[in-house]
Design a protein around this nucleic acid. Structure first.
Length: 276
DNA sequence: CTTGTGTCCTGTAGGC
DNA sequence: TGCCTACAGGACACAA
């Protein structure tokens, strides 16, 4: 679920609730969501540590602690974070980080695919290889057509698949790749290396704009509400989606139906008329 | 190195 | 109503 705009919104909204707070107690209800180290060390390593800064890289949320370790959280498909009082017990709670002000940061993950890690900076390359190999983010200044073209020109896989590659477009997932391809008027089935320079320029701009708008509108909360802000409210980018999960609806540009296909085992939505 | 496929896990929607 | 299947926004291991 959460892609860059959702994780960034969570980072912005959760920072004032967590900065300067000390973790007093960690309860792990579901051991397999602790990716590293083993659960006992994970719990002991967090006790009495203060959260001093909160960052993000791609879809990873990074909580920097007072002893220079980093609590890293990846929400995968269905994870949430909530900051709630000690008494509340939400469904699908997997890890609870009790704080020194009688609130708790709670990692909620129905599918239990998300992971939490406690690492030193030196451990990141061996423990979180994906984080280490991550490419540029579309919101970065130096994510531009030159950068994108340097990857696309040597990939013959479908452009949609390449956009989902975190080594190329860090933080981009299924929603924002479909929306950016629509905005750029590019068919998701096109081989990446078939895009000409003009098309790569369009796609680069479309990715940047789509991801920035996702952040501006606080992320995408679909009807299943798998993504919510830390206070339980919804994002608003779903109101602006042009093609994602719009199968059968009219294309906003040409009026013909949006179609759904499977690309690389993922649902893909696009307009077969407008996207060449 | 690249590419496609399967797997992790659980809940839900839709067909019959 | 109940059963069965397909599918869900991600990432990675693995084989070819």
């Amino acid at each position: 679920m959460p892609e860059l705009p959702e994780v960034e919104t969570i980072r912005q909204r959760i920072s004032p609730l967590l900065l300067g707070k000390t973790i007093t107690k960690v309860v792990v209800q579901r051991p397999d969501v602790v990716g590293f180290p083993e659960v006992a060390k994970f719990k002991a390593g967090l006790k009495d540590k203060t959260i001093v800064q909160i960052g993000r890289r791609g879809k990873y949320l990074l909580l920097f602690l007072s002893d220079n370790k980093i609590l890293i959280i990846h929400l995968r498909l269905s994870g949430h974070l909530r900051v709630i009082t000690d008494k509340e017990k939400p469904d699908y709670e997997r890890v609870r980080f009790g704080l020194n002000d009688r609130t708790a940061l709670v990692f909620i993950e129905p599918r239990a695919l998300g992971r939490v890690y406690l690492v030193t900076p030196a451990e990141i390359p061996s423990i979180l290889k994906g984080l280490t190999k991550m490419g540029r983010e579309p919101i970065e200044e130096n994510f531009n057509a030159n950068y994108l073209y340097s990857f696309l020109k040597r990939r013959k896989a479908k452009i949609k698949t390449v956009l989902l590659d975190q080594r190329v477009c860090a933080g981009v997932g299924n929603i924002y790749s479909d929306e950016a391809l629509f905005l750029a008027k590019i068919n998701p089935n096109r081989p990446a290396n078939s895009l000409n320079w003009t098309e790569v320029q369009r796609l680069s701009r479309a990715l940047k704009l789509t991801v920035k708008n996702g952040i501006k509108f606080l992320g995408t909360t679909m009807s299943d509400q798998r993504y919510l802000l830390p206070d339980g409210t919804k994002g608003r980018f779903q109101e602006r989606l042009k093609v994602f999960r719009c199968e059968g609806k009219s294309c906003p540009t040409c009026g013909k139906p949006i179609i759904r296909t499977r690309i690389g085992n993922r649902s893909s939505y696009f307009c077969p008329i407008c996207q060449i």
